[in-house]
Design a protein around this nucleic acid. Sequence first.
DNA 1: GATCAATTAGTACTTGCTATTAATATCTAG
DNA 2: CTAGATATTAATAGCAAGTACTAATTGATC
Lengths: 184, 184
Amino acid sequence: MRKAERQEALVDLLASNPFLTDQELAEHFSVSIQTVRLDRLELGLPELRQRVKQVAEQAHARLRSISSADIIGDLVEIELDHSAISILDTEKSMAFANSDIIRGHHIFAQANSLATATVDAPVALTGSAVIKYVSPVRVGERIVAKAEVTNISGRKRTIKVRSTAGGREVFQGEFLLFAIESNS
Amino acid sequence: MRKAERQEALVDLLASNPFLTDQELAEHFSVSIQTVRLDRLELGLPELRQRVKQVAEQAHARLRSISSADIIGDLVEIELDHSAISILDTEKSMAFANSDIIRGHHIFAQANSLATATVDAPVALTGSAVIKYVSPVRVGERIVAKAEVTNISGRKRTIKVRSTAGGREVFQGEFLLFAIESNS
DNA sequence: GATCAATTAGTACTTGCTATTAATATCTAG
DNA sequence: CTAGATATTAATAGCAAGTACTAATTGATC
C-alpha cells in the first residue's frame, strides 16, 4: 500500500471512527506510530483528544439547538397570525440512504412547524393537512418555506405553505391548525 | 459555601458543561485543585477526558442510528405493495418545549416513511398527501401505524395509513407515492 | 554509488489527569 | 481551652496520548 493510498484511507477511517489512537492506527496500517503521526501532520488531522472533543462539542451544540428550537429550519421573518418564512439547508442525513433526494417528511416538518409557529398561541395542534410534493429536492439545496394565514375563525387557523428550492416550487400544503391556550 | 453545597453545585455544573478542567472548576469555586479532585472522587465524577468522550460516543451512536434508519419507528411487519406496520415510542424530545404533546411532524414522519417503505421500489417519492390528526399524542405513548396499499396503477401507489396510540385513533393519512426505479 | 523520499527511532516536553502521602486549617465537643 | 475529627491544601511520582524536533535507516531511482 502506497503512502497516498494510506493517507486517503486514513482520512476515511478517522471520519467514520474518530476514536482511534495513533497506536491503533499504526497497527491497522502495519506502520510505525511515527508514520501515522507524520501522515496526520501532513493531512492536518488533529489528535485523538481533539477529534473526540470536536465530536462532543458539535453534539452538545446540536442537542441544545434542537431541544430549544420548536422550528425546523431557521425562522427568517414572522408576523403572528399573518405570515412567516423559514429556510432549511438540506444535508446528506436528510436524504434516502441510496439517493440524494431529500425525504419528504423533512420538507413537511419545516412547513408544518412554520405553520405552527405562525399561530399566535402557546401551542398549536395540526388538525389536518393537504399537501403536495411538486418537485424533488436534492441534498445541498436550500428550502425556503413561506406560510400565510388565510383564515381565522375562533381557534381554527387555515395556513397555506409554499416551499421553493433553487427557484422552483417543491412543496405546497394547506394546514388546518387549532390554537391551544392553556399549556398543560 | 459549604462542602455539601459546593459538591451539589459541582454536579450541576458538570452536567450543564462537561468541558471544564479541574483548574477551571477550582477557580470557579475558589478552592484548590486538590479539593476539586477530592470532590470528584467522592462523587464518582469522571475526569474531563472521560466526560468529553462519553458525550462524543453518545452523539456518535445516535447520529449513526438516525442516518442508517430510513424508517421512522420500528418496522414490525411488511408485505411489499400491500401493507406494513411500524411502532414508534415517543420521547420528550419529540414534544413541544412547553408541553407534553407530541409534535405533528413526528407522527407524519412515521406514517410517511412507513408508506414509502411499503412501496416495492428502490426509492419512492411522496407526491401528495391528505392527512388528519384525530387526537393529540402524549409523551411516552406508543404509536402504532398501519399502512395499506389501496391502489396501484403504473408507478403510482395510493396508501392509507392509520395510526393509533393507547387504543385510540390519532392519525389518518392518504398518501400518493411514485415508485422510482433507477437510483441516481 | 549518490541522492531523495519515505519510514522508523529516540528524546525532551506538554496536558490533564490518578494515586498517594503529608502537612495545615477549621471547627466542634468535652 | 484543647484534643480530635473534618476539610483543605501541598507535594511528589507516574500515566496516556500526544507535539516537536533531530537523527538514523531503508528503498528505489537516476
